[in-house]
Simulated assay, not measured.
Amino acid sequence: MHRHMAPGISRRHFFAAASATALPLFAAAPAPAAPVSIARCPDYGTALTPTLKTMFDQLGGLGRLVAGKTVGIKINLTGSPRQRLGNTPAELAQYTHPAVVGSVVRLMGQAGARRIRILEGCFACDDPMEEFLIEVGWDPSPLLNAATMVDMENTNTLGKGRKYARFKTPNGGHIFPSIMMNHSYEEVDVLVSLAKLKEHATCGVTLSMKNMFGATPLTIYGDHAGKDDADEATARGGRGTIMHAGARQPAAIAEPERDPRSPREDKYRMPRIVADIAAARPIHLAIIDGISTMTGGEGPWNGGRLRAVNPGILIAGTNAVCTDAVGTAVMGFDPMADRGTPPFEYCDSSLKLAEMHGVGTRDLSRIEIAGLPIKDAVFKFRV
Rank of each mutant, 00 (worst) to 15 (best):
Trp138Ala: 05
Cys41Gln: 05
Ala90Tyr: 01
Asp127Gly: 07
Thr341Cys: 09
Phe26Gln: 10
Thr46Ala: 15
Arg236Pro: 01
Gly60Ile: 10
Cys322Phe: 00
Thr169Pro: 07
Trp301Glu: 13
Arg258Asp: 06
Pro217Ile: 01
Ala34Phe: 03
Val188Trp: 00
Ile220His: 09
Ala29Asp: 15
Val36Cys: 10
Ile277Asn: 05
Cys203Asp: 02
Asp126Cys: 15
Glu153Tyr: 09
Leu77Asn: 07
Pro373Asp: 05
Ser349Glu: 04
Pro35Ala: 04
Ala275Phe: 01
Phe123Cys: 13
Asn182Gly: 06
Pro50Met: 10
Ala280Phe: 03
Val330Glu: 10
Thr21Lys: 09
Pro335His: 11
Leu119Tyr: 04
Lys210Ile: 05
Lys74Thr: 03
Ala99Val: 02
Ala27His: 14
Phe123Val: 08
Arg281Ile: 08
Gly68Pro: 10
Glu255Gly: 03
Asn76Lys: 12
Ala275Lys: 02
Ala47Met: 09
Cys322Glu: 02
Val274Lys: 03
Glu135Asp: 14
Glu255Arg: 11
Ser178Val: 00
Gln94Arg: 14
Gly204Trp: 04
Met270Ser: 01
Arg162Trp: 07
Gly237Asp: 05
Lys267Val: 00
Thr46Met: 12
Thr21Tyr: 13
Asp363Val: 11
His244Ala: 09
Phe344Gln: 00
His2Lys: 14
Asn310Cys: 11
Arg12Leu: 14
Pro373Val: 02
Asn145Arg: 14
Phe379Asn: 09
Leu85Phe: 07
Lys168Glu: 15
Arg339Pro: 04
Met1Ala: 15
Trp138His: 14
Met55Thr: 00
Tyr44Thr: 05
Thr88Tyr: 01
Gly172Val: 07
Leu207Asp: 03
Leu77Lys: 11
Leu133Gln: 07
Glu153Val: 14
Leu133His: 08
Phe132Ser: 01
Met180His: 09
Lys380Thr: 10
Arg264Thr: 08
Gly299Gln: 03
Lys227Thr: 12
Lys163Glu: 15
Asp127Ala: 14
Gly371Asp: 07
Pro170His: 08
Asn154Tyr: 05
Pro89Lys: 08
Ala28Lys: 15
Ala16Met: 14
Phe333Tyr: 15
Glu355Gly: 09
Gly297Asn: 07
Val101Gln: 02
Met294Pro: 02
Gly340Arg: 08
Ala225His: 00
Ala325Pro: 06
Lys227Leu: 12
Val105Asp: 07
Phe213Tyr: 11
Gly102Gln: 14
Leu285Ala: 09
Ser19Phe: 15
Asp223Arg: 01
Ile242Trp: 00
Ala286Lys: 03
Ile313His: 06
Gly161His: 12
Ile374Ser: 08
Ser292Glu: 11
Ile75Tyr: 01
Glu345Trp: 04
Thr49Ala: 15
Ala22His: 03
Ala354Phe: 05
Leu92Gly: 02
Gly61Lys: 06
Ala146Thr: 07
Leu351Gln: 05
Asn156Ile: 06
Leu158Ile: 10
Ala201Tyr: 08
Ala34Lys: 08
Gly72Arg: 03
